[in-house]
């Protein structure tokens, strides 16, 4: 049996100090150790994209990282997007309004992939959106409504930025 390693990791702004077995996947750490079950687990070999989280602000597959590697790093999961159902993130609102999900299993991965994408590409073309979501699989929607939602989210985010600027 391998030893336990102490790690301290910031998840959604909260510092956690835990002891983990080195082989514990980051996705399992988030779900089972921290109880943050918004991050889903699908293929467990880096193909389906449902476990996507932000690792130091960059999208990464949490199922092909070890929790011990997150020591000293900053993570954001889908739970970090909004505090309650009344105040969803504009991207979440857009997904809801455009019916960009049916079963919802893939949604957290899409959202976490798109947060940094929209930051870097505030006014994306459809081609850029398709490229951005190419690493996430959805078996319900056929992607069309997801693309519509990203367009809507982009305009919502632009509008809220304009309001803040004014």
């Amino acid at each position: 049996m391998s030893n336990l390693f102490p790690i301290s990791v910031t998840v959604n702004g909260v510092l956690y100090q835990k002891e983990v077995e080195p082989r514990l996947l980051l996705s399992d750490f988030l779900r089972h150790t921290l109880g943050l079950t918004g991050t889903h687990v699908g293929c467990e070999h880096g193909v389906c994209g449902v476990c996507t989280i932000l690792f130091d602000d960059k999208p990464a597959r949490s199922c092909i990282m070890f929790a011990v590697q997150a020591n000293g790093h900053k993570i954001m999961t889908v739970e970090g997007l909004s505090n309650d159902m009344e105040h969803l993130h504009p991207l979440q609102e857009a997904f809801s309004e455009k019916h960009a999900l049916q079963c919802g299993f893939c949604t957290p991965g899409f959202l976490m992939t798109l947060i940094p994408f929209l930051k870097e590409n505030p006014d994306p073309t459809e081609e850029q959106i398709r490229e951005a979501i190419s690493g996430n699989l959805c078996r319900c929607t056929g992607y069309q409504n997801i693309i519509e939602a990203v367009k809507l989210a982009a305009s919502k985010l632009q509008a809220s930025k304009a309001t803040v600027a004014n």
């Binding site: 880096g46 994209g49 996507t52 690792f55 960059k58 999208p59 990464a60 597959r61 092909i64 990282m65 992939t113 994408f117 490229e131 951005a132 190419s134 690493g135």
Partner: peptide
């Protein structure tokens, strides 16, 4: 580079 995996893979 853009041909390698996806953005989530390329970040790690």
């Amino acid at each position: 580079m853009p041909w390698i995996g996806h953005v989530q893979i390329r970040s790690r």
